[in-house]
Each structure stands twice: as C-alpha cells, then as structure tokens.
C-alpha cells in the first residue's frame, strides 16, 4: 500500500515552522485547502506531509491599528467580504475578496492561502499591490515583512522561504477622499477567474490635479503588474481623458501579457488598456468629494 500522507496540526506558529524546517519540501502548509486539494488531486504536487495551520490561534484577526487594516492569515475570503471593519476602512478590499469564485470557495479560502498560492489569475493580489500592502511572515529565523509587490515572484512562486508561513497582511488605510476600485473582467462564466483584474487608487487635489494615482494589473502576467514611473508621470496633472489614456496605453505597452484559455496575449493587452482606463475613471469618480 502507498505511504499514507502524514498530517500535522500544530497549535502555534513556532511549532508549524519547526515541522516545516524539519521536513523541508516534503511538507506542505494547508489552510482552506481550496487550491491545495486541486493540486493534489491533479497530482501536480505529491507531498508526504501536510501541516494544517487551522488550529493556530491568533491568525483570524480583522482590525484597524495605527492606520493599517490587519488581516490574519486564516481569515476567510467571505469574512473579509462581509467584515464591517474592512468595509468601513478600505471597502475595495472587501469588494475584491467578494468577487472571488463563488460563496462556497470564499467560505473556505483564506487570506494567507491566496497570497502563498501566488496564482497569476487571482483577484486579491492586485488590490494588495496597489494599496502598498505588506505581508508578514514567520520562519525559523523569526519574523519579517515583505511588500506585496515583492512578495509575488513568478507563477506559483513567492518570496517565502520553505520554512516560512504567512501570518497576515497589513494594508495602509488610504487618506480620506481616496477612491479605490477593483475591476474583475471575466471572459467566460461569472465564476471564472479573471482574464484581467485591475485595481485603481486615485486621490485628487481640490483643483482636480492628481495627488495620488496607483494602478496594479492582475491576471495579465505572471505576477501583479505595477509601474511606479508611469504613475509618477500623472502626479500634479489634471486627470482628464488624455492623461487617463496615456496611463492606460503605458500599462498596455509595459505589461508582458500571457496567453491562456481566457484570452490571447493580444486580447489581454487590449483589455489592460480598457480596464486600466476604466479603473482610473471609476476610482476618480469614487474620489470625487474634492471636486
């Protein structure tokens, strides 16, 4: 008979990290198991041991502290979506998590899981990158914090060391008057993963010029794409149709789009152009109070 899969259910982060350190690549962390089960069943992974982190206390917090929204790694997508704390502090985060898959998946999938999975076609990562979120991780060498934009490295690859686990995500609450949106564009069923997803963040001065503009594009390339130089060009300028088109074109030019069943590279480039424009437009509309 085949070797049975070993299951660990540590009750502290340190214990979990110790198991990971000892077993190395043979062990896989499991949280909501929505992604892991598929990978396992399709035999894309064959771990000898699972380290289920569900019994570790303290990873389910949702709170705003020091101007930051803190989401514990074990908070489910559904909890983020419905949380009054999230909806009041940074509604776009609740909105993006609410657009993932369907309610059955959202009830199980976790914040830590979506980060660690680093699937190019996930929704929340682009929002975290646009909002300058920080990922807190802990391993044998203690804790460290990684900016979301540096956390996603490649297809299914993150900055995590093999003995590190995600313990939470911190998102700076944008200043009052900031508009932030996430547009998920699907080309097939509404339960599909995105063909492209664009997060846009806009703050305007009273005269209509741009105080802050941030755009991250998800699902179009291996990792969420953000171009700080392009954003910087917009600062201080009036946010008119020309400027928005310039930013959208610049994103379309710079994202090295990929090809999959949801759209060809050509199509994705065109969709980046459309949805960056729309994201900026709707973020600006949401930021409107100043105008």
């Amino acid at each position: 008979m085949p070797e049975p899969l070993r299951l660990f259910q540590p009750t502290s982060i340190e214990e979990a990290v110790a198991v990971l350190a000892e077993l190395g690549d043979d062990a896989k962390v499991v949280a909501g198991a929505t992604a892991l089960t598929l990978l396992y069943r399709q035999r894309l992974i064959a771990p000898g041991a699972l380290v289920s982190i569900g019994r570790i206390p303290g990873l389910k917090t949702i709170e705003v502290v020091d101007g930051e929204l803190r989401l514990g790694a074990l908070v489910s997508h559904r909890e983020v979506e419905l949380s009054p704390v999230v909806r009041e502090s940074i509604p776009v985060v609740a909105d993006a998590f609410g657009k993932v898959a369907n309610v059955r998946v959202r009830n199980a999938a976790t914040v830590g899981g979506v980060m660690a999975e680093s699937d190019y076609a996930s929704d929340p990562p682009a929002v975290f990158v646009a909002l300058d979120a920080v990922v807190d991780v802990q391993g044998s060498n203690g804790k460290r914090s990684i900016p979301a934009s540096a956390f996603f490295v490649a297809f299914y690859e993150t900055a995590l060391e093999h003995d590190e686990i995600v313990i939470g995500v911190r998102v700076p609450v944008p200043p009052a008057g900031t508009g932030a949106v996430y547009h998920k564009f699907v080309t097939r069923s509404s339960e599909d993963r995105p063909c492209v997803g664009v997060a846009g963040v806009v703050r305007l001065h009273a005269d209509g010029t741009v105080a802050d503009l941030r755009v991250a594009v998800g699902a179009a390339a291996e990792t969420p794409q953000r171009f700080w130089d392009t954003e910087a060009l917009a600062i201080g300028k009036p946010l008119d149709a020309d400027l928005i088109a310039q930013v959208a074109d610049a994103y379309a030019d710079q994202v090295d789009t990929l090809d999959d069943m949801r759209g060809s590279a050509w199509y994705r480039t065109e969709m980046v152009r459309v949805w960056v424009r729309r994201a900026i437009e709707s973020a600006a509309a949401a930021a409107a109070p100043a105008r």
Partner: peptide, 9 residues
C-alpha cells in the same frame, strides 16, 4: 478550466 454557466450567468 472548463466553464459551464453558473446561475449568475
């Protein structure tokens, strides 16, 4: 990877 309609569609 294969999409059928959901009730939302």
């Amino acid at each position: 990877d294969y999409m059928i309609v959901s009730i939302e569609d």
